[in-house]
């Protein structure tokens, strides 16, 4: 737990979860029923973490992921925690390589969602639906890892600044310390788990 982040990030290996709890004979993330069971197992882990959490969802060991599972394990997972009254949960998806990337992008865009994903070792991208302002702010933060409010706002037209930064926070694509007000890239906060 860092002084600015009031939680310990948790790593959730979906390949391991799939084999242990859902379908011990199969290593593929296919069928909606399987995706739903995996999502519920992830939610149970997050529930144990308390009112605020940051999870590194690791897809590295998943060979095949179909659209139904991408919808359940990525889109519905994110959607669920954006509802009022739910715990404040942040996510970084790891191991989003070529075989999974298209399915994840499709389900995110269809639902108007975005997610932080490691698409190559050490390289993070914002996948899904995001405005130009959100992308530029997020990229600036990702490049430096830690920014002040003023630094975050650079490059965004003043009239759109507040909305763009507010959206990044509401969509939980970045973390703002309640202690210092500084902005943290989610990738930086999970770097010790990679």
């Amino acid at each position: 737990m860092t002084s600015e982040l009031p939680v310990d990030p948790i790593a959730i290996d979906v390949g391991d979860l799939l084999q242990r709890t859902v379908a011990s004979l199969y290593s593929h993330l296919v069928t909606r029923q399987t995706g739903r069971a995996v999502r519920m197992a992830i939610e149970a882990r997050i529930h144990d973490a308390g009112d605020m959490s940051l999870s590194l969802i690791d897809l590295s060991e998943v060979t095949i992921m179909d659209f139904s599972c991408a919808d359940e394990v990525v889109a519905k997972l994110l959607q669920g925690y954006q509802r009022p009254g739910r715990a404040e949960a942040f996510f970084v998806f790891r191991g989003v390589r070529e075989p999974h990337r298209h399915q994840i992008e499709v389900v995110l865009e269809r639902q108007g969602l975005a997610a932080v994903a490691e698409t190559e070792p050490g390289r993070f991208e914002l996948l899904g639906a995001a405005t130009a302002e959100e992308v530029s702010s997020w990229q600036a933060l990702e490049e430096r890892g830690l920014l002040t409010e003023d630094e975050m706002a650079q490059g965004i037209a003043e009239s759109r600044r507040e909305e763009a930064l507010d959206r990044l926070l509401r969509r939980r694509l970045a973390f703002r310390s309640p202690v210092t007000g500084r902005w943290h890239a989610l990738s930086r906060l999970v770097s010790h788990l990679l």
């Binding site: 593929h28 296919v30 909606r32 060979t63 095949i64 992921m65 179909d66 659209f67 139904s68």
Partner: peptide, 12 residues
């Protein structure tokens, strides 16, 4: 992968 995804979705 895409071939497997097609079969998965069409069987579902």
């Amino acid at each position: 992968v895409q071939f497997s995804v097609i079969l998965s979705e069409v069987c579902q």
